[in-house]
Design a protein around this nucleic acid. Structure first.
Lengths: 203, 203
DNA sequence: ACGGCAAGAATGAACGTTCATTCATGCATT
DNA sequence: AATGCATGAATGAACGTTCATTCTTGCCGT
């Protein structure tokens, strides 16, 4: 049987979605529980029925992002041309995430993760998941065993992740400057992916 | 005559140096004035004789970093081979800044600058200064007029800055993973700099 | 050499505010 | 009547900031 989605979980997910705005505008330390509750459209007391503490919200938020990423990759992995699909997903992500506020959140998460070990663990899990997913794509498109790919190209995966993150954290001025920079980022990512061997198709 | 350094300025500079640790460990919002004062080895009240508010400390801290950068570049610009000197300065910076806590501070600054316009202004000035300095180096080593270089290679400069920042914000695990990643970062930076035309030396 | 004294460096308790968290209470629905 | 969801006022701790006060220093007339 499929796991039934508890209504409370659904509610929690909706709360997490609304709460992002408050965190974007004020930061994790700057946003108060009052702010979060207001943004979620409920009272402070009721808020605590869904999340036992402020720290729990932050952790749930990051964990939720990890779930989203897994979903993106499951799409990529089942596609007929995973590597091509990966490239276009990254392109879209880099071009869209410029001014949508998602970068603010990631900058916040990065800063906190370098400071708080318990957050570092969660972010570390996410990066491990990303690298595993990326190397899996590499493995499929190259035909090499996953273990070999991890040995040789894990750093390539990390590097791509780093570039995507970094470009999402750029200040958005919507000028030529940013467009040129985005182009350079995408070119570099593509060059990095070009270094992964490709399986020669048999006719 | 050289501008005399007021003792108060010297003291402020020392306070800024000591205060970095508190900000690294707790973040800009997380560190209290009591924390900062304790780290600076003085009472809270006395602390306010040197900085009128918490925001002023943050701004002074970032501005101080800008001054440091200008000093680095003045060394580079007067060297006989500015481009080579630039490469080795970047290499040293990327390799050293991995686990020394400077990345924590930059992650914090990045996050705040995406959130607070007044901080964004200061960080923006720093990035402008960096790009101007880098393009000046490009201009010298290529022989092209500065305006041309800015037109064509400002994005290259921004890109290099972005890479250096991003790699300093990586979590430090001191393993093979990080070493490989750093190698990729440095390779990419060098490739980017290779695209700047070099003046042919005349014998 | 020495007591008196102004100047300002330094202190930490106090202030008003805001924070995360809790709890007594109300309002449906059964 | 009873159960579960929701409220927002209450609580105590901690925050940034201020301020009355105490130390430290160096100079003065003697």
């Amino acid at each position: 049987m499929t796991a039934p989605i508890a209504p409370a979980d659904l509610r929690s997910a909706m709360i997490l979605a609304s709460v992002r705005r408050a965190f974007m505008e004020k930061g994790f330390d700057g946003a108060s529980m009052q702010d979060l509750a207001r943004e979620a459209g409920m009272s402070v007391g009721n808020f605590y029925r869904y999340f036992p503490s402020k720290a729990a919200i932050v952790e749930a938020l990051i964990t939720g992002d990890l779930t989203d990423l897994e979903r993106d990759f499951s799409d990529i992995l089942v596609s007929p041309n995973p590597m091509g699909r990966l490239r276009q997903t990254i392109k879209r992500h880099v071009e869209d995430s410029l001014c949508n506020g998602e970068g603010r959140l990631w900058a916040e998460i990065t800063a906190v993760s370098l400071r708080k070990p318990e957050i570092a663990v969660i972010v570390g899990q996410m990066e491990i998941a990303l690298v595993r997913n990326l190397t899996t794509v590499f493995s499929i498109s190259s035909g090499l065993p996953l273990t070999d790919v991890i040995d040789r190209y894990a750093a390539h995966a990390s590097f791509v992740v780093m570039m995507v993150m970094a470009s999402s954290m750029q200040a958005c001025d919507a000028g030529k400057q940013n467009a040129d920079l985005t182009a350079l980022v995408l070119r570099t990512i593509n060059q990095t992916l070009d270094e992964i061997p490709q399986m020669t198709l048999k006719g």
